[in-house]
Design a protein around this nucleic acid. Structure first.
Length: 185
DNA sequence: CAGTGGATGCTCT
DNA sequence: GAGCATCCACTGT
């Protein structure tokens, strides 16, 4: 089952854990989501904390759309916008278990073992070919395809990675024991 | 392995 | 002009 706009329209704190195990594909290339982080507007670590800007416009838009931004001047990162419109909540997709289009991923990232193809937010964007042109696109139509998880996933929860503010919030979710995580919990 | 630092571009102060 | 929601190469065990 395709993930609907209504699925994403709930608060990110409800949606994020349910994303673990869902499938994320771009032009047929992608895999199972095994790691995400939640960000909301009251969160000093969130891009939306200081209000709407040109960069964060899509995060303030309707749920069920992509928010893509450049990180450290080098990498792209993909967020799935959640919550009521204007609440500016989003789930950062941090790692996938590659299942579709492994050859395309290896071409984009250089020959590499499968477990390292999508084990980080910048890596998975490179592997799937996600860039600025995907910012603001709807997640329920091509080139995106998001499919509901097929069964409940054993969840791991912990503090988020790579941030300096609100370090203690346990808003990182992962598939427990997966070898495809960006880091162990 | 673990730890460190450079690359790189854009946003916001 | 600083500071990143990162990754990789390189160092030293």
């Amino acid at each position: 089952m395709r993930l609907t706009r209504e699925f994403f329209a709930r608060t990110v704190h409800e949606v994020a854990p349910e994303l673990i195990g869902a499938a994320l594909l771009l032009d047929g290339v992608g895999g199972r989501i095994v790691e995400v982080e939640a960000y909301d507007q009251d969160d000093p670590a969130s891009h939306s904390f200081r209000g709407r800007t040109a960069r964060t416009a899509s995060m303030f838009g309707a749920a069920g759309h992509a928010y893509v931004y450049r990180s450290y001047g080098v990498h792209w990162c993909l967020n799935l916008v959640c919550g009521e419109e204007g609440r500016a909540e989003a789930a950062l997709v941090r790692a996938l278990e590659p299942t579709h289009g492994l050859e395309a991923m290896r071409e984009r990232r250089g020959r590499e073992e499968t477990r390292a193809l999508c084990s980080g937010p910048g890596k998975l964007c490179q592997a799937l070919g996600i860039t600025r042109v995907h910012d603001g696109l709807s997640l329920d139509e091509p080139p995106f395809e998001l499919l509901e998880r097929e069964s409940e996933a054993p969840l791991a929860v912990g503090p988020r990675i790579g941030i300096t503010r609100a370090v203690k919030q346990p808003w990182r979710y992962g598939l427990a024991g997966s070898p495809f995580l960006s880091r162990r919990f």
